[in-house]
């Protein structure tokens, strides 16, 4: 296993509440849908192998690391470099493939939490990187080193903003108090982001020296990506402002959520399926608990017993044959 320790941005299952996971899934699916449409429509058929192979390269590239001091090391997540090389929409697809395979095959990040992880790394990471990169290269058009400054800041801010989004999702789920998770995640990722930025600049310098033409791939059609630019800037601004606000309040976001009652509303909708915590048709809650408990236990232990028996028989058969 070369991927241990797990990257602190891949949220496992169990840490996000179902409403937060569902909302993140919906947003991610919509954005990825748009990315797919853009890719199959206006991009050339040649892009399918490019996106697929580059996704593999980003995935494998995440193994690259360098020691900073002591036991800590710098890693590459790759949202920024993918955005710079391919442009935002294909980069969304690249990061979506990487994060999905990590969750479904390597269990780096949860399955239900995949929506949130996609939102943080494939949507926010890419959009923010694109906005920052475009804005800074616009300012520093004349300087040849503008690309590198823009690359560093884009990589750093994509990591930082994505981690803030992650912290806010945890806080909204009531898993981690905002006044601790936001500063902690922010501080850790402000450092991790420096590693990401340095590797990104190194990679850009290498590509700049060998295949300068590739660095123009991303802004081939800047007009089409204006939406990404605006949304990316907005996300960066809102999260940069919202996070300190959320963490400065003693109870952070949970307070906001409770104040507006939307978490309760969401919970009620889910729990109303069994009205008043009783089984339909049985009015006594204690009795209902006992009955549900007995039925559940009997079935589960029936399954376990059956499997145990089958297993034993298979073993006996195996030993008899040998």
């Amino acid at each position: 296993m070369l991927f241990s320790p797990a990257h602190p941005m891949h949220i496992p299952d169990g840490f996000l509440s179902v409403p937060v996971s569902v909302i993140a899934w919906i947003i991610s699916v919509v954005v990825i849908g748009i990315a797919l449409k853009k890719s199959s429509g206006e991009l050339k058929e040649r892009d399918l192998p490019l996106i697929g192979v580059l996704a593999a390269a980003i995935f494998a590239g995440q193994m690259l690391n360098f020691s900073v001091t002591g036991g800590t090391s710098g890693h590459l997540l790759g949202a920024a470099i993918a955005t710079i090389l391919l442009g935002p929409w294909p980069a969304v697809l690249v990061m979506t493939s990487v994060v999905s395979v990590q969750a479904l095959i390597f269990q780096d990040g949860g399955v239900l939490a995949l929506g949130a992880n996609l939102f943080n790394m494939a949507v926010i990471g890419v959009f923010v990187a694109h906005a920052v990169y475009t804005l800074i290269t616009g300012f520093l058009k004349k300087q040849s080193w503008g690309v590198f400054v823009a690359g560093f800041v884009a990589a750093w801010s994509s990591i930082l903003i994505a981690s803030l989004a992650c912290a806010l999702q945890l806080a909204l789920s009531g898993t981690s108090p905002a006044n601790i998770s936001v500063p902690a995640m922010g501080a850790i990722h402000a450092l991790i982001g420096v590693g990401e930025g340095l590797i990104t600049v190194g990679a850009l310098a290498f590509i700049f020296a060998t295949r300068k033409d590739l660095l123009k791939l991303g802004d081939a059609k800047p007009a089409n990506n204006k939406g990404v630019l605006i949304v990316g800037s907005l996300i960066a601004l809102v999260l940069a402002v919202l996070s300190p606000l959320a963490s400065s309040h003693p109870d952070g976001l949970e307070w906001v959520a409770e104040e507006h009652g939307f978490i309760e509303a969401a919970k009620d909708a889910f729990y109303n399926i069994i009205p008043d915590y009783t089984m339909p048709g049985i009015s006594n809650p204690a009795l209902a608990t006992i009955i549900a408990g007995i039925i559940g236990s009997v079935i589960v232990f029936g399954v376990a017993y059956g499997i145990g028996r089958a297993e034993k028989r298979a073993k006996n058969k195996g030993s008899a044959q040998s």
């Binding site: 690259l64 710098g74 990104t200 600049v201 990679a203 850009l204 590509i207």
Partner: peptide
């Protein structure tokens, strides 16, 4: 970091 970045760059290339 530059060495690692060069490795990443050549992988992407």
């Amino acid at each position: 970091a530059k060495v690692t970045g060069g490795m990443a760059g050549s992988i992407f290339l």
